[in-house]
């Protein structure tokens, strides 16, 4: 099987004032791969995701989406259409129904006709199990439902890659499962995903690779078996076991 590279990050640096958040991050993602980034809070995981679609531009380094350099592209809106982003706090548009949240990128950005966009939006809502809630506003949905709308909105744009920034961290424990199930299905369907998450069970069972980040560098990356059973770094072992204790194997 020839592996097609979707995302390649080379030597990413980012500082906020005196605080250096990213200190040379490199990683890559092939088509259909799911990689989960774990690590203590404040290690730059979220900053890295925001760098990838240039919501926060990096200070140094290169980011390639297929063969386009995202950091120097002149058509950023085009690149962003191809990179889905799922936010910790959902980022749903409060004045739009679930369906219109999914549609607006299609009609306003992709300039798709209303009818066609509505059909595609319903298709994506069905995919996350929310077709019955299409007419409801964000304020009328539970956290888990909101996040599933967020995922449907990203999917509708038919991105090459979806970035997830702690998609379940703002959810009540009983709502996490429904979101992880949707993500698991996406992984199975071959979506390419880079996920920042603390859900160890999910990372262990769904990801192709786990990336352990701390203090702005990647400490270790490898398959879940390798990282859980035979980590090369003592720090990786400590962290993974602490998190697994804390969050359990839930969602696996």
């Amino acid at each position: 099987m020839t592996e097609q590279m979707i995302l390649r990050i080379e030597d990413l640096y980012k500082s906020f004032g005196d605080h250096e958040v990213l200190k040379g991050i490199s990683l890559s993602l092939n088509k259909g791969e799911t990689k989960v980034v774990v690590g203590p809070s404040g290690t730059g995981k979220s900053t890295m995701l925001n760098n990838i679609n240039m919501l926060i531009p990096p200070d140094q380094g290169r980011i390639y989406l297929e063969d386009v350099d995202v950091t120097t592209t002149t058509d950023l809106t085009k690149i962003r259409q191809e990179i889905g982003f799922v936010f910790q706090d959902f980022g749903l548009f409060d004045h739009l129904t679930a369906r219109d949240n999914v549609m607006i990128g299609l009609t306003r950005v992709k300039k798709m006709a209303g009818k066609e966009a509505a059909e595609l939006a319903m298709l994506e809502l069905r995919r996350v199990g929310l077709e019955k809630h299409a007419g409801q506003y964000p304020a009328e949905l539970s956290g888990g439902q909101k996040q599933r709308v967020g995922i449907a909105r990203a999917l509708a744009m038919q991105p090459k890659l979806i970035l997830f920034d702690e998609p379940t961290s703002a959810l009540d424990p009983e709502l996490i499962g429904e979101v992880l199930t949707v993500m698991k299905n996406l992984a199975r369907d071959g979506m390419t995903m880079l996920i920042v998450s603390h859900e160890m069970g999910f990372a262990r069972t769904v990801s192709d690779q786990i990336i352990f980040m701390e203090n702005g560098v990647i400490v270790e990356q490898g398959s879940p078996e390798q990282l859980f059973n035979n980590p090369q770094q003592e720090r990786t072992r400590e962290f993974l076991f602490k998190l697994t204790d804390l969050y359990g194997e839930g969602g696996g």
Binding site: N53, L55, T77, K78, I79, R80, Q81, I83, G84, F85, F87, D89, F90, G91, L92, F93, D94, I104, G105, R108, V109, G150, R153, M157
Partner: peptide, 15 residues
């Protein structure tokens, strides 16, 4: 209006 809505709009490719 929350910052994350603006970020979400930009991430969809809106100007």
């Amino acid at each position: 209006i929350s910052e994350s809505q603006l970020k979400a709009a930009l991430s969809l490719g809106m100007t």
